[in-house]
Design a protein around this nucleic acid. Structure first.
Length: 328
DNA sequence: GTCAATGATTACTG
DNA sequence: CAGTAATCATTGAC
């Protein structure tokens, strides 16, 4: 209220306030400020043109500066307590905000980081097509791995594009609100602290969108993983040339169809498959041959004639038994 | 849609 | 740890 006491020496109505009578001066002040407050109260009920005219009149008023200060002070005192209560309530309601990160969000962040969706890009992740093309020729990297990386890079791209959109929208809305508040600050007291509080509220309201984006991205990664890492869903029959090479070896070593590590590697190289796949193929072949020898006889004859080495026996033996009459 | 064939996985064994 | 047996999940011919 000091602001009012220290305000100009000329009254709003223009009369002389140098009156030595302090009571009269005080009454004048009261009446003047009452008038201005009354004008403010009636502004809301008026149409736009009247309001603009009234606003202009108010902003030109000699008492405006002093009254504005007074209103700021009152608002600081009253609104501050209300806001602080509100904030406490909001904090209680919204525990899922980034200000108080919960384990779920931490898990999402960790997964995004582990998969390289956030954080530093991993060698060419931004160029999935190149990765996919080159990936087929990489060390142990199969075409599937290259496709996995390519799709992961695509998810990364989408995530960052959406994140950018989100940040842009949040920023635009925040700026819009700040501008509105600044605009309003010409006719009503708006403290920087209030602007700060409003911005914080906007960010809190926007954060669930960001969490949803993270959640969706993680779900996409999980789906991709299950799609690519479960080989059974990826199963492809080996092509005929591959099966020919394997069958040739199998029937050529029918007495002991247990390729050693060197042979497995050689076959894997020849057939463009992994050693594990060669091992699987022989496991399946042995058991299925044994289950139906009769059915495989024709096949045995065919590959026996193809193979220059020739069959060592008509029945597969147990590993390293060496004998042609061994059992599987 | 059905079903045999087939590649991969799991539990268990020696 | 390599192998077997049983089983799963998918492919591909019909």
């Amino acid at each position: 209220m000091e602001a009012l006491a220290m305000s100009g020496r000329v009254g709003p109505t223009g009369e002389d306030v140098k009156d030595p009578d302090g009571i009269k001066k005080h009454q004048n002040h009261q009446q003047n400020s009452g008038d201005v407050l009354q004008q403010i109260m009636t502004v809301a009920a008026e149409n736009l043109e009247d309001t603009q005219a009234r606003k202009h009149a108010l902003s030109c008023h000699r008492m405006k500066g002093a009254l504005f200060d007074v209103l700021c002070e009152i608002k600081e005192k009253t609104a501050f307590s209300i806001e602080s209560i509100k904030e406490e309530e909001e904090e209680e309601e919204e525990e899922d905000v980034p200000d108080s990160p919960n384990p779920h969000i931490i898990r999402l962040d960790n997964m995004l980081l582990a998969e390289g969706v956030v954080g530093p890009e991993r060698g060419g992740a931004s160029a999935p097509v190149v990765v996919m093309a080159a990936g087929a020729l990489l060390e142990d990297g199969t075409l599937e791995q290259a496709q996995y990386r390519g799709k992961l890079a695509h998810i990364r791209q989408i995530y960052h594009a959406e994140l950018e959109k989100y940040e842009q929208a949040c920023k635009e809305f925040t700026n819009h609100v700040i501008n509105l508040l600044k605009e309003q600050s010409r006719t009503r007291p708006v403290s920087p602290k209030e602007i700060e509080r409003r911005v914080a509220i906007i960010h809190r309201k926007f954060s669930p969108i960001q969490i949803q984006l993270k959640q969706s991205t993680c779900e996409a990664i999980m789906m991709l993983r299950s799609q690519f890492l479960d080989a059974r869903r990826q199963r492809r029959n080996f092509d005929k040339d591959t099966v020919d090479v394997l069958n040739e070896y199998f029937y050529a070593h029918l007495a002991n169809p247990y390729p050693d590590d060197d042979d497995k590697e050689e076959l894997a190289r020849k057939c463009c498959m992994s050693v594990a796949q060669v091992t699987n193929w022989f496991v399946n072949k042995r058991v299925r041959y044994k289950k139906n020898v009769a059915k495989h006889l024709e096949e045995a004859k065919l590959y026996a004639s193809v193979s220059s080495i020739g069959s060592e026996g008509s029945s597969p033996a147990t590993p390293n038994s060496g004998g042609p009459d061994g059992e599987l």
